[in-house]
Design a protein around this nucleic acid. Structure first.
Lengths: 216, 216
DNA sequence: CGGAATTTGATAAAAAAATATCTATACCGT
DNA sequence: ACGGTATAGATATTTTTTTATCAAATTCCG
C-alpha cells in the first residue's frame, strides 16, 4: 500500500472548504489567495499551491471562482458523493460527534450508532438509533457501510475494530487512544487530540522564552 | 514571532508518551525503537529521530529506559509541571473534553467551565463548576489561568477569545470552526477535526483505486 | 488610453522531514 | 569466551514541503 502525498495540504483543504462555503452563502463569487491566506494565517503562496494541488486554475490578476474552488476541493477529497458511516460508543465524545452538523459539508453521514450500554440501546442520540454492539458486524455488512467511527474507551476499541473488519469495513476513524491492529486492506486514521495540545505547549513555551529574552 | 520546528515530531510525542506510561504501569523498564515503531505504524528510524529530538540517549544494543524516556518527552513539551486551563462552552464537545481523564498525563488541568446557558450555570460538569461567560475575563485574570479551551459554537468563539485576551490569556486551544483574531502575544491552536477525515478520505480513495488496478 | 498595482502560474531555490548506511556497543545462546 | 543478532547514534541521501522569483494576464485609476 503506497503512501499518500501532500498530507499537509490535504489537512488544510477542509478549512478552505468551510470558509468558501461561507463565502458562497454570502454571495461572494470570486476570491483571491491573499484573502484566504489571511483567514488561514498562512502565506499566500501556500494557499495558491494548495488550491493548485486540487486541479483548479484561477484567473491571473483576478482570483478564483468560489463555486469552482468548492467543487475542485470536494472532488479532490471525494466529498462530492456523501458516504455513510456508523459510530460506535455513544458516550460524551460520540454524542458530540453525532451532534456536529458540519459533517454533511464534508461528505459524511453517520447513519447509526452502537453502544454496549443496555440502557442506551433503542434510544436515539441526535436522531440516530442506538444499536447493541453485538450487532455491529452484521449491520455494518447489511447496511453496506464503509466507514466506522470509534469513540469507545480505549480498552474496547480493538474488539470494535475487529467487528467492523468482520462486517467488511474499509476505513476506521479512531478516536480511542490506542493503536488498532487491522488487515492491510483496511485504512485507519487515528485522531490524537493531544497532538494539538503538544503543539500549543511548544508554541507557548517558545513565546515565553522570547519574552524573557526581550527583558534582558 | 519565529516558527516552531519539528512539528510532525511534536505531534507524535504524546502518542509515545501514552504508550510509555502504559508500559511503565506494566513494569516494563526498557524499550527499543522497533517495538514503539510497530505500535506507531512507523519506521523505527523515525521513532529514533523523534526520541533523539527530546534529548534522551539510549543504549546501543539495548534500547531506552522507559522512565527516562517519559521524563524527557514531558520535559520537552513542558508537561512536567501541570498547567491550568479554563474551558468555555459546556455543550456536548465541552463535556466530552471535561470528562476526558487523560489530560493529567499531558500536563493539563481544566479548573473551571463557562457557559452562556443560564440553566447550566452553578451546576458542575465532570466535577467542574460552570460559571457565566460574563465573568470569563475577570475570573481568567483572578485565577491566573494561562490557557483557554474554546468549545462554543463558531458564532460565539470570537467574543470568547476577546474575553480571554482581556483576561490576560497566553494560549487558546480552539475547537470552534472559525479563525480567531488575537494579538501577536497570544498563541492559538485551531483544532480542525475534519482534517483527519480528509486524510482518511484520500487514503480510502487511493486504496479503492489500487484494488481496481489489481482487477485489471 | 496608459501606467501602476494585483494576481495567477511556472520555475527555481531553500528548508524540513523522512529514509538509508554504517559503526560501535550490548546481549544471547552455545 | 565467541559468533550471531539486535540496537543506538552519527552521517549522508532522498523526498517532501515551503518559500522565493519572475513573467504574463487582468483590473483600476487617473
Amino acid at each position: 500500500m503506497s503512501k499518500v502525498q501532500k498530507l499537509p495540504t490535504i489537512r488544510r483543504l477542509p478549512t478552505y472548504l468551510h470558509r468558501l462555503n461561507e463565502m458562497r452563502k454570502d454571495g461572494v463569487e470570486i476570491v483571491a489567495t491573499p484573502e484566504l491566506a489571511k483567514y488561514m494565517n498562512l502565506e499566500a503562496i501556500v494557499v495558491r499551491k494548495d488550491l493548485a494541488a486540487t486541479g483548479v486554475t484561477g484567473q491571473p490578476g483576478v482570483g478564483y471562482k468560489v463555486p469552482e474552488l468548492i467543487e475542485s476541493i470536494r472532488a479532490f477529497l471525494s466529498w462530492d458523493n456523501t458516504s455513510e458511516a456508523v459510530l460506535i460508543g455513544a458516550g460524551s465524545l460520540g454524542s458530540a460527534i453525532l451532534g456536529y452538523e458540519g459533517f454533511e459539508e464534508y461528505g459524511l453521514r453517520i447513519i447509526a450508532a452502537f453502544d454496549s450500554d443496555l440502557t442506551k440501546i433503542g434510544s436515539t442520540v441526535h436522531g440516530r438509533e442506538v444499536f447493541p454492539v453485538s450487532r455491529l458486524a452484521e449491520l455494518t455488512r447489511r447496511l453496506r457501510v464503509h466507514m466506522g467511527i470509534i469513540c469507545t474507551p480505549a480498552e474496547h476499541a480493538q474488539e470494535v475494530a475487529d467487528a467492523l473488519v468482520a462486517g467488511g469495513i474499509w476505513g476506521i476513524w479512531n478516536f480511542a487512544n490506542v493503536s488498532l491492529k487491522v488487515p492491510d486492506n483496511v485504512v485507519v486514521q487515528r485522531e490524537v487530540i493531544a497532538g494539538g495540545l503538544a503543539v500549543l505547549s511548544v508554541k507557548l513555551n517558545k513565546l515565553k522564552h522570547e519574552l524573557q529574552e526581550q527583558e534582558d
